[in-house]
Design a protein around this nucleic acid. Structure first.
Length: 649
DNA sequence: GTAGGGTTAG
């Protein structure tokens, strides 16, 4: 090796006078220059970090060029990331910046690839990845997680599997937690849960994120037992994991289990945030009891969340109070919310609709469209339901006709179901049938079900047969549809047809859903009554109370609606069956226990029958009590002998 | 840089 001194022949150094050569440039050691450059880099990177607009970024970019740092991968990587974050199309500005860098490292390549991953097209990201590999640049773990994330966003499992193959062939990255976790997420978001599970099972090291991704995947697929099994096996659970499981129960209509798990979460001193709260609030909404409503309100405030200052928590509370029968409190919260969004408005509109307050729902909708907030499909479901339940047929038709042209919401099968309901209820059964035939999308069970329900109200067994035929094809095992058809036949006295439907039900081995009602006693305990149930400890008192009431009602002219009994039995037996309906038993118990002057709230699993409806109207008059009944359709508020639904349900 | 969220009709 030739030494530098020999090569340059500098054994004899010329005697340079520092005076002549360094007068304007003071001597700065290299290490100090390096340090200065480092400071400059850090300074520009932090400036970039604070940029929230393209204009600001361009300004910093000019400084980067001025300082000669446009070849510095560290700074340019940050520049590319920020450009993509503020949404500047990656194929223009960012790509130019990238092209001008002569020596590119993995990070700068990855920043550009990420840009395409976020903005698309993903294929371009994959092409760049190949180019990078051809240039001999090795990927970093973030290169793969960005690519995998992109595959999950566009649900392209084929591409995802290609990336998976790359990860395996490059080697080493399969063990990277970030990469493996993103891979699980990619598979489950694409709907390949089993593949995600395989990745999970093959992982040597897992963290709470790996577990949670999979738990959520099981929750979304409705497989709660697999989710719970994983959750139980998770060694260290954090707030997100707990929340995933609590909300999993809530989303799958298992509110009691959601609340039990939440109590365990609290016992474990795990923090509660707004995401946890919405799940818990939604569970309480499903239970529909005032007891739970006040409990969760307290829980929220203890965790520092006020329904009026947090839009997500607030909207959940609006929905919950409406579902618990307290639409006044729902509106009180809604009114005081400092920020509202489409969820808040939709929840309130649907809440009003559920309680038969059609004009309030419509007024609120009109108020909403004057704001910046755009109505969505759920908002229109609420508005159309409100019109339908209040018999506002013309207004409903108008909203339906303009929802696409004025608000850009394309009517889907759910909206058609509302319209069939609206036309059907107002007696235009043929018009409803025509609407179904003209639908641009395939009608689902809800659409035919709405027609069948209307046939019950207007006693039309012929159209009911048409609706039922399609309905039985779509939902062959749904017992409610058979019962509805059988009841329509029964009201028309067509007992042979009733027998035929019942035979089908028996042959299919379908079991009838027993009717049951809940009422909250003054002790806060929820009492459940089944139809004809005499097992309650205070059964004889309940029966006596009911008989006293019946006497008074009869005196006022109440005549039992015997046609509400769909059995071919004598009138005396029909009377006995009617008096043992679960909501009547629950109401009678309420009279015995709920403080006088307070309203009585009953939750029923099936639709209230005509006789019970009439009975409750009279009972609210005779007893002076407000009676609120939530059936599986909506709320009925009985007061002074009338119901909020105007006998239209 | 990877995991958890609220409104829906018969």
């Amino acid at each position: 090796m030739v030494s530098v001194s020999k090569k340059l022949n500098i054994t004899k150094l010329p005697s340079l006078s520092p005076k002549t050569h360094f007068t304007t440039q003071p001597f700065i050691p290299f290490s100090q220059l390096q340090q200065q450059r480092k400071h400059l880099e850090t300074d520009l990177v932090s400036k970039l970090d604070n940029c929230r607009s393209f204009t600001r970024i361009k300004r910093v970019h000019a400084q980067i060029i001025l300082n000669g740092l446009d070849q510095c991968c560290y700074v340019v990587t940050k520049l590319l990331r920020m450009l993509s974050n503020v949404g500047v199309p990656v194929n223009s500005y960012a790509h130019n910046v990238f092209d001008r860098v002569s020596h590119r490292n993995s990070f700068i390549w990855t920043a550009l690839i990420r840009g395409y991953c976020v903005q698309g097209p993903v294929n371009e990201a994959v092409r760049l990845y190949s180019l990078m590999r051809m240039e001999g640049i090795g990927p970093v773990s973030f290169t793969f997680s960005a690519l995998l994330k992109a595959c999950s966003v566009c649900e392209d499992v084929g591409l995802g599997m290609q990336i998976h193959g790359q990860i395996v062939s490059v080697g080493g990255f399969g063990c990277d937690l970030f990469v493996a976790n993103t891979m699980i997420d990619m598979y489950v978001k694409c709907g390949f849960l089993e593949c995600g599970r395989r990745v999970f099972d093959e992982m040597v090291v897992r963290d709470v994120i790996s577990w949670t991704s999979l738990i959520v995947a099981y929750v979304k697929s409705g497989d709660l037992s697999s989710a719970a099994e994983l959750f139980d096996g998770l060694p260290v659970k954090d707030m997100v994991a707990w929340t995933a499981m609590v909300n999993g129960y809530a989303q799958n209509a298992r509110p009691r289990e959601a609340l039990n798990l939440f109590k365990r979460m609290q016992d474990g001193d795990v923090e509660t945030d707004e995401v946890t709260l919405v799940g818990v609030i939604s569970a309480c909404a499903q239970l529909g009891a005032a007891k739970y409503a006040s409990w969760v309100r307290k829980v929220a405030e203890e965790s520092g969340y006020r329904p009026t200052s947090n839009v997500v928590v607030g909207s959940a509370f609006v929905d919950m109070y409406a579902k618990c029968g307290n639409v006044e409190e729902a509106y009180r919260i809604f009114e005081r919310m400092s920020v509202r969004n489409v969820y808040s408005y939709s929840s309130m509109i649907v809440g009003f609709a559920m309680h038969g307050h059609a004009s309030e729902a419509i007024n609120l909708f009109e108020e909403m469209v004057k704001t910046e907030i755009k109505p969505n499909r759920v908002t229109f479901v609420g508005v159309l339901t409100a019109c339908s339940h209040a018999g506002l047929a013309e207004q409903g038709e108008r909203y339906f006709a303009t929802m696409q042209s004025c608000y850009g919401v394309v009517p889907d099968a759910d909206h058609y179901a509302c319209m069939v309901d609206l036309r059907g209820r107002s007696g235009r059964l043929e018009g409803a049938l025509q609407l179904i035939k003209s639908m641009p999308v395939k009608p689902h069970g809800g659409v035919w079900g709405a027609l069948l329900g209307a046939c019950r109200i207007h006693a039309d067994p012929d159209i009911a047969e048409i609706a039922a035929k399609s309905l039985f094809e779509l939902e062959p095992d749904s017992i409610g549809n058979y019962i509805l058809l059988s009841n329509i036949y029964a009201s028309a006295g067509r007992w042979e047809d009733v027998a035929r439907v019942r035979k089908t039900v028996r042959m299919k081995g379908l079991k009838k859903n027993p009717a049951c009602s809940f009422v909250e006693g003054k002790d806060g305990v929820i009492h459940e009554f089944l139809a004809g149930d005499l097992t309650h400890p205070r059964s004889s008192q309940i029966k006596q109370e009911l008989e006293n009431l019946l006497e008074k009602l009869k005196f006022l002219g109440y005549q039992p609606v015997l046609s509400s009994v769909p059995y071919d039995v004598d009138d005396k037996e029909k009377m006995r069956i009617l008096m043992a309906h679960s909501e009547k038993l629950a109401f009678s118990y309420g009279l015995l226990t709920v403080a006088s002057g307070s309203s009585i709230t009953i939750v029923k699993n099936l639709r209230i029958c005509e006789d019970c409806h009439l009975f409750m109207c009279g009972a609210s008059w005779v007893t002076g009590r407000k009676i609120i009944i939530r059936d599986n359709m909506r709320f009925h508020h009985f007061h002074d002998g009338a119901c909020s639904c105007n006998n239209f349900w």
